[in-house]
Amino acid sequence: MNEFYKKIFIKQKLMRTVLISLIPIIIFSTYLFGIRVLVLLAAVAATGTITEYLWEKHYGNKASEAVFVTCVLYTLTLPVSTPVWIAISGILFGLFFGKLFFGGFGKNTFNPALVGRIFIYVNFPEPLTNSWNNAASIFPGGFSTYLTDHIDAVSEATPMILYNNTAKLYDIQSLLLGTVPGAIGETAKLLIILAGLYLIYKKVASWEIMTGTIIGFIATNVVFYFFNLPVLNPLHGILMGGFLFGTVFMATDPISAPKTKTGKWIYGIIIGSVTLLIRILSLFNGGMMFAILIGNTFAPIIDYFVKESAARKKNKLEAIS
């Protein structure tokens, strides 16, 4: 069985570490939202894995284990009520136009999970902005309910939509514990924070990008506050929407992020700042996924100028000496 697996996939320890960090979030999300979480995960993972395998086989290559991470991350950004066919169409679009057409693993400019997520967000806005209310009570959660038509009866606004429409806020405890409506994986903030610390400890994710993203968000928030623009206190802003999930798992994607240390700081600050700009100045309730893709666009440029600046400084020092 192991030999058969080796013939199909390139083993990637880094990607396995990311998957391990996601397991508690998947378990908790399944408990809160119900078995439909596993249905969506299975459908997306099967579609994505088979698609990449067939594509790479055509070119005589193996599929990467990174496809599992892409499929899981993509699914966790969806509302649990997302129709399966829409979820499948998103992962297909994300893999083809975010990864495979660029040449496969290691050659993509954009995060493929976010490419797929934005594709369905733009094309199917109504089902992608609905969210099942898992928070009536922490026990027994939604695990005992197989979600079908019942979803429509208990859908409720996410914290971001609720605030934008009514100026009401969920309390910090609910936001941290994840007992609020939202996308499958974005509500469990405490588990996301722990996953981020685990990935930093394992040296899999960049702490510079995570820290830079938070600094960019808070700094922009302070600037907006002094100009009397409608902003939340930074803690609420960070805990609402997909900001933390995107910071830990999406922005730190090593392929689509800068490689230089200085570049990682700049990249993170851009993402954090743009997230708040989109939240305040656009029609979109969130902004993290758009901000990360904008950051992906600038990542190669950032690295180029950082390296050019370092080279110029080195030449000046050599000239002086």
Score class of each variant (00 low, 15 high):
Ile184Cys: 07
Asp171Glu: 13
Tyr5His: 12
Glu186Ala: 13
Phe249Glu: 06
Ile280His: 02
Val39Met: 13
Leu235Ala: 03
Pro112Asp: 03
Thr77Pro: 10
Ile255Cys: 02
Pro181Cys: 11
Lys7Phe: 14
Thr70Ser: 08
Ala219Gln: 11
Ile266Met: 07
Ile20Lys: 09
Lys13Ile: 12
Phe290Gly: 06
Ala63Gln: 04
Met250Lys: 06
Ile27Gln: 04
Ile320Cys: 00
Asp171His: 11
Tyr74Gln: 06
Leu22Thr: 01
Trp265Cys: 00
Leu244Asp: 00
Arg16His: 15
Ala153Ser: 12
Ser155Tyr: 10
Lys7Val: 13
Tyr198Cys: 05
Leu78Lys: 06
Asn221Asp: 04
Phe96Ala: 04
Phe119Leu: 03
Tyr163Asn: 03
Ala45Leu: 15
Thr260Glu: 11
Ile280Gln: 04
Ile271Met: 07
Ile215Glu: 00
Thr297Ala: 07
Thr17Gln: 08
Lys261His: 13
Ala183Tyr: 07
Lys203Thr: 09
Ala167Gly: 06
Lys313Glu: 00
Phe226Pro: 05
Asn165His: 14
Trp265Pro: 01
Ala66Asp: 14
Ile26Thr: 10
Ala87Leu: 05
Asn108Cys: 06
Phe68Asp: 00
Thr220Cys: 10
Phe224Gln: 00
Gly295Phe: 07
Val180Ala: 03
Ala46Ile: 15
Ile266Phe: 06
Ala135Lys: 04
Ile138Thr: 01
Arg36Met: 10
Gly104Arg: 03
Asp149Lys: 14
Ala45Asp: 10
Asp253Gly: 10
Leu244Cys: 06
Arg312Cys: 07
Ala153Cys: 08
Ile27Cys: 04
Ser174His: 13
Ile209Leu: 08
Ala45Tyr: 14
Asn228Met: 05
Ile151Gln: 01
Ile292Trp: 14
Glu3His: 15
Ile8Gly: 09
Lys6Ala: 12
Pro79Cys: 13
Ile88Pro: 05
Thr297Met: 13
Tyr74His: 10
Gly142Ile: 06
Phe68Asn: 01
Leu14Val: 14
Leu76Lys: 09
Val72Ala: 03
Leu235Tyr: 11
Thr77Cys: 15
Ser155Phe: 06
Phe226Asp: 02
Thr211Val: 08
Tyr225Pro: 00
Leu41Ile: 11
Ile23Met: 06
Val204Pro: 02
Phe33Glu: 02
Phe249Tyr: 15
Ile151Pro: 00
Val39Trp: 13
Leu177Pro: 12
Trp85Ala: 02
Val306Asn: 09
Ala291Gly: 07
Leu14Lys: 15
Ile86Glu: 09
Ser64Pro: 08
Ala43Tyr: 14
Gln173Thr: 13
Leu175Asn: 04
